[in-house]
Design a protein around this nucleic acid. Structure first.
Lengths: 113, 113
DNA sequence: CAAACATATGAATAACTGTTCATGTGTTCA
DNA sequence: TGAACACATGAACAGTTATTCATATGTTTG
């Protein structure tokens, strides 16, 4: 009943392999976190916790160019983390749902421990 | 009581500015998420959900080189997300605490909705 | 319609990141 | 002690990413 460990692995080894989520799911998960892994974007999301805000003001608060904010908002929009509405010339951005709060809050706990 | 909007902002604007966490905290938060924003690292953490495992087996499961795994484990170790113990020649890695499970679980919810 | 304004976007650049390759460190065992 | 093994690490390279700059789109107002 002995096994050569360099070719056949323990049951635990095989078990882990099975229980690992699909490649695609793990990829998507990493992609999601990648979005939160940038200071500008985290700040944007954090500001939007308080409510909607227009691009101009977001740029001012963050002390970055309007263009930079717009580019980042595009990424957040693409990940369906924020939504927007247009009112005349200005566009107001807001959190898409409460998922963002949960995820950020979850990370915050780890930081401020 | 009127205000020029291009120089003085609404109360809401000022309020947000105050309630925004410190620059450093937001930076650390982004740094934390950055770590989860890589497929190899997410896979590593996910595998370690099941329990400790040595570098060699981690590399095999992930189908990446021993060196690549080692480099990534170093990053995870630096962020105090994993711990390790040495037993002879082999080194076993494990999750540092349950924070990782929570954070990953939180992201998983958003993915699988 | 033209000018002014708010925002979006493409291209270019600089900085960052993950892997590979080669090699170093630490441990066991004959 | 020396060879074999498991892992760590530095340097280099390729791919990715965030910002900037210039410009385009969309909207209001005179």
């Amino acid at each position: 009943m002995e096994q050569k460990m360099d070719t056949v692995h323990s049951d635990a080894f095989a078990s882990v392999k099975e229980q690992l989520p699909d490649e695609e799911v793990l990829y998507d998960l990493a992609e999601l976190y990648k979005i939160f892994g940038d200071t500008t974007r985290v700040k944007l999301l954090y500001i939007l916790f308080e409510g909607e805000m227009c691009v101009q003001h977001l740029a001012e608060l963050l002390q970055v160019s309007q263009s930079a904010v717009s580019h980042q908002l595009r990424i957040l929009k693409g990940a369906r983390l924020v939504k927007y509405r247009r009112d005349g010339k200005t566009v107001y951005y807001a959190l898409a749902d409460d998922h963002v709060r949960e995820i950020i809050g979850c990370g915050m706990e780890h930081i401020t421990e």
